[in-house]
């Protein structure tokens, strides 16, 4: 296990990237960080800049105005950077598959390491997704 990977196992810093969500997944992400679930006790912290982030939490469907920005932001992130698709929209566009304004799935634009389906996924599911991501890094 490389040094970088080893350091990633503790205190992942996450950056929250809403593509065009309905807010729910975003609320649940914040819920996971506030007192009831309190992800911060594991050192998982929301950061203000993509350049500090280890994990990109993507919510919502890409649309024509922002799908290029997802790629642009991913390129700015220091590698290794893991993308976690939160919610059905980010996993496979869900009900917005028929929309005229959704060009493609998130995983066609950037590589996705973990999918957390649900509309919206509960904070427990988000925590579970992150834990599974950390476990997969260990192996």
């Amino acid at each position: 296990m490389g040094l970088i990977k080893k350091s990633l196992l503790k205190s992942l810093w996450v950056f929250h990237l809403p593509l065009s969500p309905c807010n729910n997944c975003d609320i649940e992400i914040l819920d996971a960080l506030t007192p009831r679930y309190d992800l911060e006790r594991f050192g998982i912290q929301l950061v203000g800049s993509i350049r500090h982030a280890d994990v990109l939490l993507v919510t919502g469907v890409p649309n024509y105005k922002n799908y290029t920005k997802l790629k642009y932001l991913y390129e700015q992130a220091p590698k290794p950077c893991f993308v976690v698709a939160i919610g059905t929209c980010a996993c496979g566009r869900g009900v917005f598959k028929d929309s005229f304004n959704s060009p493609c799935d998130v995983d066609k634009i950037v590589p996705v390491s973990a999918y957390v389906p649900g509309c919206p996924p509960k904070p427990e599911a988000i925590i579970d997704g992150i834990v599974k991501l950390i476990k997969s890094l260990k192996t």
């Binding site: 929250h16 809403p18 593509l19 969500p21």
Partner: peptide
Amino acid sequence: GPYHPLQEEP
């Protein structure tokens, strides 16, 4: 904006 970490909508 349009992207901010704690913000819900872009």
